[in-house]
Write a protein that binds this DNA or RNA. Structure first.
Lengths: 275, 275
DNA sequence: TGAGTTACGAGAGCAGTGCTCTCGTAACCA
DNA sequence: TGGTTACGAGAGCACTGCTCTCGTAACTCA
């Protein structure tokens, strides 16, 4: 609960790096009780079904408490109370509070990824600018509707909690992979256009990073655009975080959606997606 | 410690809005014990001095624990232990855990503001682009060297904690006011240049917000540049947060400083600060 | 069908948290 | 010198994560 935090803090997950070859239609999303259990179905004994159901209930209540009290306020005892069971009983199903946090983290990544995928799918396949805007808006809307879960994914790391990379890597990289996919398609279609102004040169060490990323993800995006794709990525989440975490003042921006759309527009241009 | 969190979460502070007319040289920064007490000096009785010293010690230990265990792990009891005193004794000096958090918040805002001011001052007064870059780098460097304090300021809100606006407003807006000041000076000097590409139009509701901001802060920055100044602001903190909060993967970017500088360069261009 | 194994829930308990209240002492001030 | 005030200690309440034991109920397999 409170181990020392290294100078560079703890990493939530290794967001890039060896990407797992996609699982096809990630996480079945039947609301009240989904098989959050690791068992991949097959024949289930009544006991196994009851167990899966209980775990699903714990995750559901955990999600509720997370939304109400934030990650730091997520209490296994409270979940147990609401489940009508004594606190030690939930440890039969969930290894620890952190384990529950991991389940919620994975679920949240999945939900965000689903929302983004659904939004991008509404744009024409060749309308790369539109896909980018829909992606951005989907992130913003999901974040606003689920502030605590968004905070869990993109806010300050929970001290002493280290997300297991092998489980969070794939769902945690869905958005950035989608984003890169859009730019890659645009690049291959030859519609990425460098904007006016002085040509910004990418320094050699950064170019080496970009080259590695390109190889790792099989991309075909020139340095400048890939670097600016990263800028669009961080800027997108920067704008969303400012809004969700209340960094804009109370009455500063009334037209937050317009502000965000304007930023998206500029970012699209910077990254080469001009119509 | 765990009151329900409204849908839109709690705001850390009202970052814009009626700005307090600057206090001259905010927070004296003599390391081990500074007068964190609200009393503005004058003749101090021994008792008052001892009290101020104790409060300063509490804040100092609090800062240490905050850096080690994060905001959620800040424990008054631990501070009391290290102070060699029983836990209830610290309540003589600090109203509550949240009050200590507020003191640390204000102090951190002050430190960041000082770092930014010092960095900006190293650039020539007419070198607006340089000032912007120094500001950005100062934010990044402070954040990397003080991740937990940065997280307190710009990470997810601490659930159930509401920073008192009347105390955090002024220190909390120093960076954005500095940033706007740089752009304002550049604008008045007539060196803001719109970049190529299609002219982005600012929608009317957003224009109304910008007009209000301009009036409130006495700025002379045209709509497009002011809107992009906001973009530079959120993007700057987005990039820093991604790095500090570990959203970049482990081995994705080795040349993080180059990446950041590149982003700063692009943002400067977008906001009109082309050399 | 019966014996053995396993899963499970309850409860007690430990160490920690924020915070409140009381009480005795010591310092201060008039 | 006497009254006031500040202060530290300690007990206590309600909460947290987590562990361990124990009795029971459910399941498995010979």
């Amino acid at each position: 609960m409170s181990e020392p935090l290294s100078k560079s803090q703890e990493h939530r997950s290794l967001l890039f790096a060896p990407l797992y070859l996609c699982h096809p239609e990630a996480m079945s999303r039947d609301e009240p009780n989904k098989a959050a259990a690791p068992t991949p179905a097959k024949v289930q004994t009544p006991r196994e079904r009851a167990r899966a159901q209980t775990i699903a209930d714990i995750v559901r209540l955990g999600r509720k408490h997370l939304a109400l009290h934030g990650a730091a306020g997520l209490s296994l005892r409270a979940v147990a109370r609401e489940l009508g069971v004594v606190s030690s009983a939930v440890y039969r199903y969930v290894e620890s509070r952190d384990e529950l946090l991991t389940l919620l983290l994975i679920e949240a990544y999945g939900d965000l990824g689903d929302a983004v995928d659904a939004a991008v799918a509404t744009a024409d396949e060749r309308n790369h600018g539109g896909q980018f805007r829909y992606l951005g808006r989907a992130v913003r809307e999901w974040a606003i509707s689920e502030p605590a879960r968004y905070a869990l994914l993109f806010g300050s790391p929970v001290p002493g909690y280290q997300a297991p990379a092998e489980r969070t890597m794939e769902p945690g990289t869905r958005v950035i992979r989608r984003l890169m996919g859009i730019f890659d398609a645009a690049s291959r279609a030859g519609v990425l256009k460098e904007q006016g102004g002085p040509a910004v040169v990418v320094p050699p060490q950064l170019a080496a990073d970009l080259k590695r990323i390109r190889a790792e993800f099989g991309l075909d995006i020139p340095d400048v655009f890939l670097a600016n794709c990263a800028l669009a990525w961080t800027s997108l989440f920067g704008a969303v975080s400012f809004e969700v975490f209340g960094q804009y003042g109370a009455g500063t921006f009334a037209a937050r959606e317009e502000l965000f759309d304007h930023h998206l527009e500029v970012l699209a241009g910077v990254a080469g997606l001009v119509e």
